[in-house]
Nucleic acid binder design. Structure first.
Lengths: 236, 236
DNA sequence: GGCCCGTTTTGCGCTATCGCAAACTATCGG
DNA sequence: CCGATAGTTTGCGATAGCGCAAAACGGGCC
């Protein structure tokens, strides 16, 4: 049913070690769907009926507290899976997924997962690998929130976004999907006000160029320096 | 070689869906070892030559920054695995593991993992599950550090420790391994001073009873209330 | 072309929490 | 039994970052 080009997805880590003909079979179980910019893909707490592979676009996964505050768990880039609640044995999605750009995804029913990993054990191994990597990143993030100041955390966050979804311009590297100050605040455990102040400062120093939901790193190297700078003071 | 009683480990989540005779085979690949209190099991950055299953005792996994600050990634309770670097495709341990109590572990060589999961796919599925669960917990922790104040975070941390490794006393619930103010600070992203102040306060209110590396929750219910309390003020 | 709405910027006072320093106190080894 | 050591408590000043409020700014829509 899915008229997805096999060759496009064959190289993804998820399918490493899977034979081409098997890949066909796996893909046959999926359907594809398009989500317009700013549409919800699934909501935190909803039944985890499907899991997803992002083909085009960008998806924001965010977790909300009972009192309404949000954090951005991650931005999903093309080629990555999301909504893997079932792999971890959860009946409900632990976060909300929203397309931040027009996005195209492959969708498998959660119910297909047990059969898939039984027939294709490499899937489980590959998924374990990516989930494990995310766990590590998550720990790194905890380490940063716990030990660094806001400016450094913002620097790290932007550098990561640039690496994951940066678009090379001659003026610098642009994060190639819409992202607000608020979003960055939710990635770094601070407020949009503080992020705004920081970016304003950086803009004056020529480190970044930014506007409405748009950020260009003009001097990535100096931002790296900022990110690694130890707490103590600047020039005496 | 391992003279471990099969029945003791058969019920662990890791071995769910594994036939008893297979379990024998798996265990034959492991050796067991004893680590005295405060001895290191592996160091962050070292070659990930083994992975572990904790049988008795308690292990602290901590991550260190280049500048020496630490955070506690988690406390490992009996029956849990740790040091799974290979499952996530890492050649080196991303954290340091230390026995906080005299501990007994099963040790498999990392090199055995690929073969094990090939022969026993349930192992991969089970591990995926536990790693996924840890990922979720990790996200919850980020959410807490980002949105709650220190007192609430400490409350949550203690409640979790109590649930995971609490020993029922008639005076309350005791966390049944040695844990310092510093440790709790490293779990909650604060300083030992702040933790000390908070616990002192709680002690006066009869919420806890604590001493040197020892904490008893005397009134878990009221601590739950504290943990969930929204930021704003107390009684007017 | 003008209006409306979501985003961003910025000022300002406030405070939770840190950081340092110093005193105190269990616990363990001898 | 006593001293050394690691952990804990507490005071006090400093401050990074928050929270509120208001203004400026785009950009798209009609």
């Amino acid at each position: 049913m899915a008229k997805v080009d096999t060759s496009l997805v064959a190289r993804l880590p998820l399918f490493g070690g899977v034979k081409p003909e098997d890949l066909d079979e796996i893909l046959r179980e999926a359907r594809s769907a398009r989500y317009p910019k700013n549409s919800a893909i699934f909501e935190q707490g909803a039944d985890a009926q499907s899991f997803f592979l992002l083909l085009h676009g960008h998806v924001r996964a965010a977790k909300t507290t009972p009192t309404g505050e949000q954090i951005v768990v991650r931005y999903v880039a093309p080629g990555e899976t999301f909504g893997l609640a079932m792999a971890i044995g959860a009946a409900h999605y632990p976060a909300t997924a929203m397309a931040v750009d027009d996005s195209v995804v492959l969708i498998w029913p959660t119910s297909a997962w047990p059969r898939l990993i039984e027939r294709f054990p490499a899937l489980a191994a590959n998924t374990l690998q990516t989930v494990g990597t995310r766990l590590q990143e998550s720990h790194t993030r905890i380490l940063e929130i716990s030990t660094q100041q806001v400016e450094q955390r913002v620097a790290h966050a932007l550098l990561r976004l640039a690496k994951q979804s940066g678009k090379k311009l001659d003026r610098g590297i642009e994060i190639d999907f819409p992202i607000s100050r608020q979003d960055i605040a939710q990635m770094t455990g601070t407020t949009l006000h503080t992020v705004s102040r920081i970016l304003s400062g950086w803009e004056q120093q020529g480190l970044v160029e930014s506007g409405r939901q748009r950020i260009i790193l003009r001097d990535p190297h100096r931002i790296v320096v900022l990110a690694e700078r130890t707490v103590d003071s600047g020039p005496a």
